[in-house]
Nucleic acid binder design. Sequence first.
DNA 1: AACTAAGACAACCGCAGGAGT
DNA 2: CACTCCTGCGGTTGTCTTAGT
Length: 279
Amino acid sequence: MDVYESGFISEMTPQSKEDMDVRKGPWTEEEDYMLKTYVNVHGEGSWNSVARLSDMIFLIYSNDIGLKRSGKSCRLRWLNYLRPEVIRGNISLQEQLLILQLHSRWGNRWSKIAQQLPGRTDNEIKNYWRTRVLKQAKQLKCDVNSQEFRDTMRCVWIPRLIERICASSGSPSAQPSTTYEKTSVLPELSSTSSDSQDAQLSSVSDLTDCYNPPSNSNYPNSLQNGWGLWSENLGGTWNIEDGVGFQATEGGESMESVWNEENIWFLRQQLYDDKDDMN
DNA sequence: AACTAAGACAACCGCAGGAGT
DNA sequence: CACTCCTGCGGTTGTCTTAGT
């Protein structure tokens, strides 16, 4: 005899019944399938009704008991994992650059940042930031919100990323490769030890490798403004489908043109100008 | 081979804001 | 206007995997 038959449940409030039934922890394949089926039928949204309706759907076809997940859990699972558009795998150099850039502009607005990286979820970006960037701040023994860390990011990390992007693209005029790799789909990208891949995997640790604290905080204007210049030139959204990887949203300039020879030259020149100004 | 630590990722929790009543 | 419910966001924790010893 289960709790329902015993009459115990009948004295409970609907809310407490729900609490008792709610499953937690990792999702199973069956649960994923149920959720996908639900969304295919009903579309996204109304997450609190997923459990109820999935019960109905599956009781028709089988003895399955349906989803015993909270609406919030269903939403999160769909958005972060099951959605067809979701891309998983290494964060590419270009994406790292964009994340750093957008974070400097918007702070911890993960969902907003994620909107500029189609296929990437706010959760993934947040995890990236916490596991990589915050770790670096910790190693550098400075606060992630400090001016020192921001300067290091702008003067060292960002330029290094750009250098690596240029280097891995093969030629100055080459556009960035679309590195929205999903390891299971594109094994060649995850198994080779190409420069691009090495760069991608090691780029973060380079922050400490080449970290050289600025001797003073009176950076020249061009350096102070340098980040803004990067932002203006790199601002936009990524586009997976066209293979280019980036499309401008604010200025109307496509990433295709942003990554042309002229602009890469400009970015590099900006970098060198900044370095000169510091000396 | 077994154990441990660290890293990466997935999932949960609490809160805030908006919509509906 | 007040209340409730739902959704979305950001912070945090849990779990699994991998690397090192």
